[in-house]
Design a protein around this nucleic acid. Structure first.
Length: 300
DNA sequence: TCAGAGATGCGT
DNA sequence: ACGCATCTCTGA
């Protein structure tokens, strides 16, 4: 059975759940591997990590974790080579770039007050906020990732009003039976899925200028909302209200240097002239209501 | 404490 | 389609 990579909480596996071994963790769908620390790929990002004392450069403060990447070790767990931004490491870099939530699992072999005494424990969602290379005393370079716990408070304030969680799966939020943490997770997942869909459909290529930005962790792009999410716009977090843009055009769009016509021509605000056409994708329909809201906000 | 087998996802 | 990377689990 192939692993289905899912970001965020896995239903039925709430924070604090204990698992006897890695196999149980894998079968529950929390982590792809029986052995690897990182569950992830360069293209998709990393959805989960296990802290189990495998690397002496790890640091665990509970809500703050410095996690060492994988690779460069021999069979006896001695560092014998530099680590690179490949495989799981590249996955964590991508999760940082796309702000994807990472499930943190602690194992009993981790020497920390935050580790369980037996088995493995799911300890909630974290965000990768930074990564760097550390040169160890032995001269080998290892990757390090700073992970910070995602709090409920952090996920709530910037959410749009009209989120529709009905298409997320079988769970319902309207019957009042779903817990608060599950609602938060669903909302988080929803946001993640919009970003992932948009980037996947457009291959990280800007819909305005057809360029992509190449980083060590792979190609990158930004997802821009047409009608802004926050005040005063209060636009929805839906694919129909989103664009895949490079950082430059994202900034231009957000500050009104460019806007869109109803036929999706890109207009230079200074001259009022079309400078090109928005590249579209069959799966990505754009709702003109949001296009018009953005345009009217930035023109007369 | 240590060493080797083992199983799976993932890169090529 | 194949071989590699990964490191837990098991047995001594």
């Amino acid at each position: 059975m192939a692993y289905i990579r899912t970001f965020g909480e896995i239903p039925g596996n709430s924070e604090g759940t204990l698992y006897v071994d890695r196999e149980e963790l894998r079968l529950a769908g929390l982590h792809a591997h029986k052995q690897n620390g990182i569950s992830g790929t360069e293209a998709e990002g990393a959805d989960a990590i296990v802290l189990n004392g495998g690397y002496p450069d790890d640091w665990d403060e509970g809500d703050l974790i410095i996690y060492t990447g994988q690779g460069g070790q021999d069979a006896r767990k001695r560092q014998v080579a530099d680590q690179t931004i490949t495989r799981g490491n590249a996955g964590l870099v991508r999760s940082q770039m796309e702000r994807l939530p990472v499930r943190v699992i602690r194992g009993h072999e981790e020497k920390s007050e935050h580790a369980p005494t037996e088995g493995y424990r799911y300890d909630g969602l974290y965000r990768v906020v930074r990564h760097w290379f550390k040169t160890r005393a032995d001269g080998f370079r290892v990757l390090q990732f700073r992970l910070e716990k995602i709090t409920e408070a952090e996920t709530l304030p910037d959410l749009p009003q009209d989120i529709d969680v009905g298409d997320l799966g079988s769970q319902s939020t309207s019957d009042g039976l779903v817990s608060r943490t599950e609602r938060v997770t669903q909302r988080l997942n929803r946001k993640v899925s919009v970003v992932r869909n948009i980037k996947k459909w457009h291959n990280d290529i800007c819909q305005v200028c057809d360029t992509t930005i190449e980083l060590p962790g792979g190609p990158a792009s930004e997802v821009a909302h047409i009608q802004g999410l926050g005040e005063p716009h209060n636009g929805p977090d839906r694919e129909e209200n989103a664009l895949c843009l490079c950082p430059n055009d994202h900034l231009r769009f957000d500050y009104g240097a460019i806007y869109l016509n109803d036929d999706l021509k890109v207009i230079d605000a200074k001259t009022g002239q079309a400078i090109g056409a928005l590249r579209t994708h069959p799966k990505h329909s754009i709702d003109l209501r949001y296009v018009r809201q953005h345009r009217s906000y930035w023109t007369k």
